[in-house]
Amino acid sequence: MPSVFKKALDSGKFVVTCEAAPTKGTNLDTMKHHIELLKDKVDAMNVTDHQSSVMRYPSLGGAILVKEMGGEPILQMTCRDRNRLALQADLLFAASRGVHNVLCLTGDSVMLGDHKEAKPVFDLDSSQLVAAIRTMERGKDMAGNELDGGVRFCAGAIVTPEANPIEPQLIKFEKKLEAGAEFIQTQAVYDMDNFRKFMEYARQFPVKILAGVILLTSAPMARFMNKNVAGVTVPQSLIDEMASAPKGGALAKGIEIAGRMIRQIKEEKICDGVHIMAIGKEEKVVDIMAAAGL
């Protein structure tokens, strides 16, 4: 049985995903509120895995919570904190609890987070994690041993269309597809001309691509991302537009911009859907979707 999200991808509809960000601690009220608010409005919710290498409630726990609340989770798994035994074990656990979508990521450096002295793992990379999922689906673990009770996942990965230079990223992208990635959620894209160019190239592969949209909350936030978030480039014109917002109106302007971009992506059929990242402002996803006419 394909997952609900997989069916949405295959249906040809414009797919929308968003994020549910686990909190630091066991008070899950905010996360539950976001899940409740969004679960029926989007096709699936990604649950982030110690985002930015900051220790939080686990993505697997969050994904199970989304499932229990009637939503469709995409389990984000990074290779930063677990070796191949732990990753496979968590995949078995996920499958046993009805979590059947996985986004495979390398993971940020431990040094960028709040436990800088921790041992980084990176036993596997993102393409190898995708390949491991496909191996497990054939009934074997990575060591070739039989699994008693199998798994089935809709497995995806990410790409950074605005990376410079782009060629090494594209080679890695193709390796992820060859390893078996069925969908791609991109890093944030703001330059539509550049993204269109990427899609002209990507269209040759049978993979569903959801464009990453990060909600801009202020002009300084946009400048901060340009300076600190690799692979994200907010063009000056958008920074100026954010700066032009009346006092107290920056967030509304950001919602307007995100909505406009999503509308353009959908109307011009640039790719198969969007992945909305409203980092810390998850309740605004509803407004972004309304602004996009979704």
Binding site: T106, S109, D125, S127, A163
Partner: peptide
Amino acid sequence: HKGLVNGPCGGTN
């Protein structure tokens, strides 16, 4: 930094 063997991560720029 991550010892990756299949190409760059998304953090490079």
